[in-house]
Amino acid sequence: MSISESDVLNIAHLARLEIETTDIPKYAQDLSSILELVEQMQTQNTDQIVPMAHPLNATQRLREDNVTEPNQRDLAMAIAPAAEAGLYLVPKVIEEQDA
C-alpha cells in the first residue's frame, strides 16, 4: 500500500501540521515505506497472538478517589498566552454550519 500526495495533505491537516509543498513527495515516500514494513510484518501468522496494548508487561495501578490537587489557577494562568476573568483565551473556533 502506498501513500498518495493527497493522503499526505489529509494527514498533515488532521495533525495540524504546516508542510512545504516541495516536501510532499518525500513524505509520501517515507510514509509508504513505513506501511511497507507493516505489510512485511503482516505476512507472519499472528492468529494466536493477543495484540499488545503496552510494551510493559504490567497492568494499570489505581488511585483512591480523593481530591488531592489544590487550585493552582493563578500559576497556570501565568504561563498562558492570554487569559481573562479566570478563563484561558483562544482564537475563536467557528463550526461550519449550513443553518
Binding site: R63, D65, N66, V67, T68, E69, N71, R73, A76, M77, A85, G86, L87, Y88
Partner: peptide
C-alpha cells in the same frame, strides 16, 4: 466521583472557572 478520572482535581459542579 469526588475527583477526576485521571487526576486528583475536584469534580464539584459550579466552581469558579479553571479552579
Amino acid at each position: 466521583t469526588q475527583s477526576k478520572i485521571f487526576s486528583g482535581a475536584a469534580t464539584a459542579y459550579g466552581a469558579e472557572p479553571n479552579t
